[in-house]
């Protein structure tokens, strides 16, 4: 009887184990590798180390850890931010984990497993006279135009400035976060908005140059973006992520980049409010 239950138990374990692997999509299982595409211009999430030119970042570390638990390798590729969603749609990437925000407008053809708290954050040059967010009404605020931040600034300006009788903030477009910081340094803009997850890195690069103003103007999440028809695969990755949170490896990676404060307690599905 004991031998039977041992065999049965082994069989169940075996089926569970192979079942786990069986839930990975065929293409990934056969290749033994995940194909991931990132926009490696977004420190500290994913970027090329200037010294070694290696692909590094918080997303890279998290993804590597996930892949270890799923028993697969990762084949990395890079592309522009605007090409990330097409890469997912054309199946060039198995999922997108590239500092991409969970947004309702993106959920038409995708689902997000939220893994990092983020939010657009004002910052200014250290010597700027602006102390609180309200000081930025009527000022020129720059941000990367390919993100959702221009819309966020407009919403904030309507609520915090125009409804209080103050002049509206002026949005000035920038190509990427480095361009935006350049314009801040030259005085073309008075303040800038970046995802809160990027600011510790920027401040570390140029110590004492920038100062954060106020709280993030909205709360959002960075999510791992899956195709809608990949629900089973999505669940597999979510469980692996849960395990990482449980055993502390998730927090360790976040702390490595100074983003311990942006941790989620557990992976959320499509949880971003906008």
């Amino acid at each position: 009887m004991a031998r039977l239950s041992l065999v049965a138990g082994l069989a169940v374990l075996a089926s569970l184990a192979s079942g786990q692997a069986a839930e990975l999509p065929d293409a990934i299982r056969q290749a033994g590798a995940l194909h991931l595409t990132v926009n490696s211009t977004y420190a500290p999430m994913e970027y090329r180390d200037p010294a070694s030119n290696e692909l590094v970042g918080l997303d890279i570390d998290l993804a590597n850890e996930l892949a270890k638990r799923l028993n697969v390798k990762i084949v990395w590729s890079e592309t522009a931010f605007a090409e990330l969603i097409p890469a997912l749609q054309t199946k060039r990437a198995d999922f997108i984990m590239s500092g991409i925000s969970d947004r309702a407008s993106r959920r038409e053809t995708a689902d997000f497993v939220d893994y990092l708290v983020t939010g657009p954050q004002f910052f200014v040059l250290a010597e700027s006279g602006s102390k609180v967010a309200a000081d930025l009404c009527g000022k020129k605020i720059g941000t990367t135009r390919s993100t959702s931040f221009p819309a966020e600034i407009e919403t904030w300006s309507k609520q915090a400035c125009e409804s209080a009788g103050k002049p509206a903030a002026q949005y000035v477009p920038g190509e990427n976060s480095i361009d935006v910081r350049n314009q801040l340094k030259q005085g073309r803009i008075d303040a800038a908005v970046q995802g809160s997850e990027t600011l510790p890195y920027a401040q570390q690069l140029e110590a004492g140059k920038y100062r954060i103003v106020g709280e993030p103007i909205s709360i959002g999440y960075q999510g791992i973006m899956f195709r809608k028809d990949d629900a089973t695969f999505r669940e597999v990755v979510t469980s692996a992520l849960k395990a990482m949170i449980a055993d502390g490896s998730y927090k360790a990676i976040l702390d490595k980049y100074g983003l311990g404060a942006n941790a989620v307690r557990e992976p959320l599905l499509n949880a971003a409010p906008q």
Binding site: A82, P86, S105, R106, R145, V172, P173, E175
Partner: peptide, 23 residues
């Protein structure tokens, strides 16, 4: 377009940054 001059590519990009319709 990369220096924010609003010529046709820049404006097309702004649209697809909002609706993801790149191609």
């Amino acid at each position: 377009s990369v220096i924010q001059y609003p010529e046709v590519l820049h404006n097309a990009e702004n649209i697809y940054y909002a609706n993801s319709r790149v191609i």
